[in-house]
Amino acid sequence: MTAVVKDFVIDGRKGTYAQLDNGLFKFVFDDGEVRIARKNTETVPVKEKQ
């Protein structure tokens, strides 16, 4: 199945990312910085008390 490219924003910096064929994820920032990363298991976020 073909991977899907998604947009992301990290600390206000934009880019796109997709899953490589070896299972790792590649994040390409618009300024050219690249991060190749493994996805971790899900960590449920803590909601803020109103």
Partner: peptide, 19 residues
């Protein structure tokens, strides 16, 4: 090095600095 995108956590394996 860990970072979060779209509610998911990722651990970096490689990094390229274009500068």
């Amino acid at each position: 090095k860990e970072f979060n995108v779209g509610g998911n956590s990722f651990s970096e394996a490689g990094h390229f600095d274009p500068v």
